[in-house]
Design a binder for these strands. Sequence first.
DNA 1: CGCCGGATTGATCAGTTTCAAGGCATGTGG
DNA 2: CCACATGCCTTGAAACTGATCAATCCGGCG
Lengths: 231, 231
Amino acid sequence: MLTQTIPSPAVPAAKGFSASRAPATDPFGVVTRCAGVIATEFSYRKEEEIYGEGEPSEYVYQVIRGAVRTYKLLNDGRRQIGAFLLSGDVFGLDPGSTHRLTAEAITDTTVRLVKRRSLEAAAGSDVRVAHQLWTMTAGDLRHAEDHMLLLGRKTALERVATFLLEMDRRLAKAGMMALPMCRRDIGDYLGLTLETVSRALSQLSDEGILVFSSARQIVLRNRQRLADMDA
Amino acid sequence: MLTQTIPSPAVPAAKGFSASRAPATDPFGVVTRCAGVIATEFSYRKEEEIYGEGEPSEYVYQVIRGAVRTYKLLNDGRRQIGAFLLSGDVFGLDPGSTHRLTAEAITDTTVRLVKRRSLEAAAGSDVRVAHQLWTMTAGDLRHAEDHMLLLGRKTALERVATFLLEMDRRLAKAGMMALPMCRRDIGDYLGLTLETVSRALSQLSDEGILVFSSARQIVLRNRQRLADMDA
DNA sequence: CGCCGGATTGATCAGTTTCAAGGCATGTGG
DNA sequence: CCACATGCCTTGAAACTGATCAATCCGGCG
């Protein structure tokens, strides 16, 4: 609501080429290593919109550094965040001609991007690329299916426990996780209010399951008990 | 819980071949018309399990007649239905080697099925098939994204309104819709209890927005007002 | 140092769930 | 053909979880 968004250019300026350097474990690498697929880097400032729901989907993105949220809105402003994208994650790959969620940088973020049409072209001539695109969309679907179970049937505490385990898995470094997003973002991801998220985190802290270095710097002390309450 | 399920044979008996007869508008047709892809028919009785979460995904299915629900369970039995599959719908296409949701027949149901491996093979040699598989998974993802917004942020009345519009679109015949599923199924799809679903339907009936012929036979009288409250 | 946005905590409120009772339709067996 | 059992649905009342409203608190930064 209060995002002082700076419009991004229709065609991001090229800052360099990074094709043919991705490791074999990088799912996006299969794609960016293809002849005819040019990867470009671009940066967005904190709170900047990357693309909007309903816009033509011209590019596909991979987070190099930073964090991104994708979300849908209802008319009155209620927001559901579909995913947080962190280093290495691919987003914007919506088959169909338009984006179905809005994407915004949570922090200052650098992405690698490729033209969607060049991906489609590569997929049309190389079945491995086609298979890779399918696999990436299938990964998003798997996440969405798990998240529907969370949103439809888990309690507030269970949702927060699930969230912590997911973030621990995806961004913990040296046993510590540094959350890039605020409590409101977490709430809008989990279908809760920011106050309920805060209360659940405080309760987990009281129970000794986690320790705060600061509000967004968290160390998990007992993953097993978190997994147990995750239902 | 009380499903008197009859185990289906590991390899369903062939009852006929229906390849090369699907109309051009049928998304599954692109696939079943392929050389080497054999479509078979099979029937399941009401409440019968078609496949279970975690089982190897050996087949991909298309509903010919009847209705199917897919769902996930928490340890204590809480259930989230991910989708209702109706005539023409394809399901069971989970990339990865295992099914991520359980599928059950809601009513007596007939499906067309093809071996997953033959699909993969066709996709490996024909990019149109590969593209079609991607498109089908992308359709599932779109539905899941919309449903996350519903589960995370809509009120009970809004959820039921959305549900009615979805079912009206997908199964209304002559202005009337005959719901194949019970109130508990609807609740488990919408993240509500069966009582809350019933109360919302009663309220919509009181307001003249819909009329019941019977509990599951519904005529929508005012789609616009439903769409308005759908948020 | 003081401002400001984000986070925490408290008190009350509201929507949904839970528990409970009863109605209605269907089908089965006497 | 009727009686009754059964499953599904509706409705009511009470309980509860999470939301809302409100008041600090805290940390970073100008």
